[in-house]
Simulated scan of single mutants.
Amino acid sequence: MNLQISRPWKLLSNRVWRTYTGGAVLNQWQQNGIPEDNHFPEEWIASVVKARNPGREKQTNEGLSWLKTEGEPLLLTDLIQSDPEGMLGTDHVRRYGTHTGVLVKLLDSAERLTIQVHPDRSTAEHLFGSPFGKTEAWYALGTRQINGINPYVLLGFKPWVTREHWEALFHRQDIEGMINCLHRIDIKEGQVILVEAGIPHAIGPGCFLMEIQEPTDFTIRVERVTPSGLHLEDHSCHQGLGFDQMFDCFHYKTYELHEIIEKCFIKSRLLSSQPDSRSKELLGRERCAYFSMDELEVSATPTIIPPQPGYSVGIVVEGMGEVRWKGGFETLTQGDCFFFPPQIEDMHLISNEHGLRFVRCYPPD
């Protein structure tokens, strides 16, 4: 494979089937087709993870990201395999091999997602043989009211919940009882929410989020029918663990409302402010060792992006412009997503007159 590795790689759109409906706002934001809700409410970005969708096994590459090239599209996994250190960085490859160690998504919910949980690393290793669990963080890019309901999330067990009570509610399929076990918290655009693996949660309707997470698709669901009426296969609930062992994935620590808000809602931090650019930390290493995010706002003046020892993933949240580097350039428009290998020479961003907002997501140190 004879390609220049050290350059930004534009990612092709990668919509993934899910058990819930949504995607209308995501379509509109991407300026991509008719803004309607369906079962493809998620865009997986820089993904080397295959989606776990029982019944769709014939979709062999569902979830994997493709790159734009001068010729035929190329799987990101194939380009990484051709030059792991060039694509990921020497230190990253030493620790994680050819795995990116992180997954980025965009998701837009038209209905409440089923109540769910994801295993932590030790549980994932024990039950799934995976070195990664699924801690995740959400950055609220936008919200909408659906049927007069303000966007919200369900998050964390209330103080009186026990494992025995939780399992009993599941076996009775007492959905209202399960909802009542979790804190309901309204969310607003611009908020960042960190959901550690093991904490039960559900995203409500009307949430347009950027998600950064550990790179797995292990989702334990306790509702056997989605809010819109889709009956789930057993495997979609327990992911092959069975209906007893799946409850080992929950952490049964309980929280008062103020405790779960303090634990999960992250305050952004200003990193720098210049006449032509402004950057802020959305999620830092001190709050999560598995990934981090920052956001850059730039004007028409070129903003230099210093070379970094590791890779990153970039998403154009708003605006238009260009990314330039030694030997080339790519236009930028809202919704564009990029994979940035390490040590790109002379890379800088240029906005049009309306400004540019750009989020960069980083793997583990």
Rank of each mutant, 00 (worst) to 15 (best):
S82Y: 11
R56L: 14
E211Y: 05
L26W: 07
A197V: 14
L12T: 11
R163Q: 12
I315H: 10
F218G: 00
Y152K: 05
I203E: 00
T100P: 02
M320Q: 14
T21F: 15
T98N: 13
Q28Y: 07
G321K: 07
I266M: 06
G142L: 09
F358D: 07
L230F: 13
E322S: 08
A24L: 03
N150G: 04
G71I: 04
I115R: 02
E322G: 03
E42V: 10
H126M: 10
K188I: 01
T69D: 11
D346R: 12
I261S: 05
Q30M: 15
L106N: 10
G328D: 13
T114D: 05
V222I: 15
R287C: 08
F208H: 02
F208D: 09
S351P: 09
W29N: 11
G33E: 04
E223G: 09
Q81M: 02
G63Q: 03
G177I: 05
F170H: 15
R144I: 03
K58W: 06
E72S: 14
W138M: 08
E297D: 09
V117H: 01
H171P: 06
T301R: 12
E318A: 09
I261A: 07
L127A: 05
C207L: 15
S279P: 12
Y252E: 11
V317E: 09
